[in-house]
Design a protein around this nucleic acid. Structure first.
Lengths: 344, 344
DNA sequence: CTAGGGTACGTAAGCGCTTACGTAAGCGCT
DNA sequence: AGCGCTTACGTAAGCGCTTACGTACCCTAG
């Protein structure tokens, strides 16, 4: 290996400016104790030299850690991809770097990743994905995050509320309610839900909204069948199979997220069930491809990219005594996958 | 803030094991100079204490940097999301963390991100996205990577070959050739290409394959119209508009990637052009949603996730004098978006 | 004119690790 | 027995920063 000149260090800047290390450090950090003109000169020289602080030295010496750890289930799931895009965007604007981990939807592995991230001394942890109904499932992660914050770390959650940290939370219940309402308005009376794994709060909340809407419909009762499966495309396929087999009279399927809806549509296509003529389908999230599916998907729009940005914003603000909660808006987007209930 | 006990440090491990810092360090790094039994004892104690080396201290002291920087255009573009998923997967298996950056398809910003990553002292840089025809566009990045490697950094590229580093490269030309061949076999003689920005090697290569296939068809000549636009869904929409307006006799559109194809399909849908009855459409990449589009997309399959893994694998191997090139397989996947040319 | 206090800067002590070098013990060889 | 070599370990010098503390200096008030 050749050895081109090494990167400039802080001493180089200090020497050029004829000041001490401490002064140079203070000037570049923008801290008090340096006269304005000296600080300007130092910054100028640093720029000319192309000086960039070594983050390892900086962090080791007790400075701020400038990296944010982001945990998602799967980056190539469009829901998480959009969240990640938002986080990365804002991080770049702030000069932060983001370390990304996939939990693969496995709570144990997720905990492992969380520990790993903290062990790697990231300054901020952002965790997305659904929480678990059973509080014991969350308690380990919760404890880990609490200890992390006690050591000065900052954390925020996206779409989960039981972690004891700031969170940005969509109103899953209202969204579920709106979907069911939309279908009932179209005359559907036999509705099936392709739900994600039982035990997930996201599933429970969205489902609760659906049930509530159905229950409010006192007269002309509605049949509601719930089939649990994985929150993935294949999960959606499996759920649709079961719905077609076990609840053949169903006229509308509520998939609890868009990725499942894609699986549902796929199964309906291969089973030659016309959508929406014979079966209406709705999703949840409005991932960007939802509009391009066959047929385009009626769904609840969540501002994923913005959610990612908001979560980082929360984590960047000084911590409050009680965890903050930022609600996100949501919107029913009606497209071509829903239509009037077939008159059998 | 409470101060729960600090994380264990190497001295703690050393003390418990009654050895020196140096010995503990060697044992945990698996380096020579420690007897097997002592090394085992040290590792055992480290495990019990839950010791995890501080990566900042380790790196500062000259140890290996264990973080890989990944540059993509946009994480929520499915092509890049799948690459990222592969990189993150393998990195996790290897105990590495990945820092991810978005270049937003802007060569200047990409260079900025590259510099930032290197300034942050990542150990490995992986760069994806298309290269540029004009070698001067790549030269700055190339120089940056060369200097980086001279300082012991490792780098690999995904889908770009002019960077002077190891690369995993799909055969874009053969893919383009296969697509054109497929359409000509179906009887299409007026083909339009919805190409990404001119100046991108990926575009040029795929286009070259298309042209070659058309040229080889000596008898029964084929009209080929090329429309350049952005490598995005909106770019696909715009290209399709122009094709419909300026080349109304077109019977098949080759979108040079799937994301553009999504835009093309979207435009055809709103313009009520039946696919494939009136117009065949093909894409390139086979992103996971390609099968769920309306209609499902005929395309060239590239193993994106595997490409991500391969790139990291290359970077992890000791460097060779000449940059290595790993070809990737590709496969024509025929679905419902292509059909026989309409007999006008 | 001097005590007290603020400001601007320098000195030096780490942060937690890796590693070059030093040393003592054990080995085989002449 | 004495030599040199290897092996196993310890000592200590950094890596490039931040920051507590120390020291000039200047300004104001008494």
């Amino acid at each position: 290996m050749s050895r081109a000149s090494r990167r400039p260090r802080l001493v180089d800047v200090a020497e050029h400016a004829a000041v001490s290390l401490a002064t140079a450090s203070r000037a570049l950090a923008g801290r008090a104790g340096v006269s304005a003109e000296v600080a300007d000169r130092i910054r100028q020289i640093a720029r000319e030299l192309g000086y960039v602080a070594n983050p390892y030295a900086r962090t080791l010496a007790g400075g701020a850690t400038s990296t944010v750890g982001l945990i998602v289930h799967q980056v190539d799931d469009p829901y998480f991809a959009e969240i990640a895009a938002g986080v990365i965007q804002l991080a770049a604007e702030q000069g932060l770097l983001v370390q990304i981990c996939q939990s693969g939807r496995d709570p144990d592995y997720e905990l492992h990743q969380l520990r790993h991230l903290i062990a790697q001394r990231v300054g901020i942890v952002l965790i997305s994905g659904s929480g678990y109904d059973d509080p014991r499932m969350e308690s380990a992660a919760r404890a880990e995050l609490a200890a992390f914050q006690d050591h000065g770390g900052r954390a925020a959650a996206i779409g989960r509320h039981a972690l004891g940290v700031d969170a940005v939370l969509p109103d899953n219940e209202a969204g579920g309610h709106a979907l069911a309402q939309h279908l009932m308005d179209l005359g559907h009376r036999r509705i099936a839900v392709a739900a994600g794994s039982a035990g997930l709060t996201t599933v429970a909340d969205r489902l609760a909204g659906v049930s509530a809407a159905v229950r409010q419909r006192g007269r002309s009762p509605v049949d509601l069948a719930v089939v649990h499966s994985a929150f993935t495309r294949d999960g959606g396929r499996a759920a649709a199979e079961r719905i077609l087999n076990e609840h053949p009279e169903t006229t509308a399927i509520i998939a609890l997220n868009d990725v499942m809806a894609m699986g549902v549509l796929s199964t309906l296509r291969s089973r030659r069930v016309p959508v929406p003529a014979r079966m209406s389908v709705v999703g949840f999230d409005d991932v960007s491809v939802a509009a391009d599916l066959a047929p385009s998907l009626t769904t609840i729009r969540l501002p994923m990219t913005e959610m990612g940005r908001t979560a980082l914003t929360l984590a960047l603000k000084p911590r409050t005594t009680r965890p903050r909660r930022r609600p996100t808006g949501h919107l029913l987007v009606v497209r071509d996958s829903t239509g009037p209930a077939p008159t059998s």
